[in-house]
Design a protein around this nucleic acid. Structure first.
Lengths: 139, 139
DNA sequence: AATATACATTTGTACATACAATAGATGTTT
DNA sequence: AAACATCTATTGTATGTACAAATGTATATT
C-alpha cells in the first residue's frame, strides 16, 4: 500500500543527494564546499547590487546554513566582500568580487561538464513532464 | 540552452533535500539523526540476521557516512548490538535490538504521518511516470 | 526620552562528517 | 612458512553544521 509513492520518493531523494554529492566532489578539487558555491552564485545573481545575509538565506537551497561562516571562508579566499550597510547598520552588504566571478566561471564549467552526460537522456517534453510532476507532488 | 534540464534537476535536488530535511526535524524530537534512522532500518531489513559494517554501508543512501560512529550512538541508546563475527574476526555482526525495533515503529509512524498529505497528490500512473523518468535520467 | 520589542548578524559550543591513517585479520604467493 | 597484499573496521583530526545565546541596531510604545 502506497508502495509506488514511497518508491518514487526514494528515487527523488536518492537522485537529489547523489547529484549534490557528486558536485561536491568536483568542487572539492577547487577548495570550495557546496554551500560556499551556492552563496557565490547567489551573490552573482544579485548582479552587482549588494545583498544582506538574510537575503542570501532566503535564496539558499539548504536554509539552515550559517551564512556568516560561509561568507568568512569566501572573504579569506577573496571571492566576496562584506561591508556594513550604510542605511541600516544591522545589515551587511555582501558582494562578489572579480576574483569570485572568475572562480565561479571555472566552477560552472566543471559542474556543466558533470551534467553533460545526462542532458540528452530525456527529451524536452519528458523533462517538462518530470518537472511538472515533481511540482505537483509538492503542491 | 538546456534551461529545461537545469530547471528539472533543480526541482529534483530541492525536493529531495527538502524531504530529508523535514524528516530529520521529525526525528530530532526522538533524539535520532537521519543516518541513525537509516542504519536502524537497514538492520531491521536484515530480518534478524547479523550484518557487517560494510553491508550497511552498501545499503546506505549517503555512502560517505561513518558507520562505526553511527552504530556507537545506537549502542548507547540500546537500539543495536555489535559483536565480533565468529567466522571472520575482521567483521562485526550488527543487529537491531527489541528496543530498536520498537523505537523504529514509532519513528516510522511519524515519518508516514509526514508523507500523508503528499500521497494523494499524484495518481498511481503519474507516480509511475515520475519514477520512470528519474530512472531514465540517471541511466 | 526611556523602555520595550523586533530585527540582523555574529559567536559559542556541542555535535556530526569527511577522509586519511592505522590496526588487525585473512588470503595469496613464493 | 614467511612475506606481501588485501580486506574490514576503527580512530585521529581537521572541518563543517546546528542551534541557542549574545550583540548591536532600529522601530514602536508609553
Amino acid at each position: 500500500m502506497n508502495k509506488k509513492y514511497y518508491e518514487t520518493i526514494f528515487q527523488i531523494i536518492r537522485t537529489g543527494h547523489w547529484i549534490t554529492d557528486q558536485v561536491s566532489k568536483e568542487l572539492k578539487e577547487f577548495g570550495i564546499t557546496e554551500p560556499q558555491f551556492n552563496v557565490l552564485r547567489i551573490l552573482r545573481g544579485a548582479k552587482g547590487k549588494p545583498i544582506s545575509v538574510s537575503d542570501v538565506l532566503e535564496r539558499m537551497v539548504q536554509r539552515n546554513s550559517n551564512i556568516t561562516r560561509i561568507v568568512d571562508k569566501l572573504l579569506i579566499k577573496g571571492f566576496a566582500e562584506r561591508k556594513e550597510c550604510p542605511t541600516n547598520r544591522r545589515k551587511m552588504d555582501l558582494t562578489i568580487t572579480e576574483a569570485g566571478l572568475k572562480k565561479l566561471k571555472e566552477l560552472d564549467e566543471r559542474v556543466e561538464a558533470f551534467h553533460q552526460p545526462f542532458i540528452g537522456k530525456l527529451s524536452p517534453s519528458e523533462l517538462e513532464t518530470l518537472k511538472k510532476l515533481i511540482i505537483k507532488l509538492k503542491s
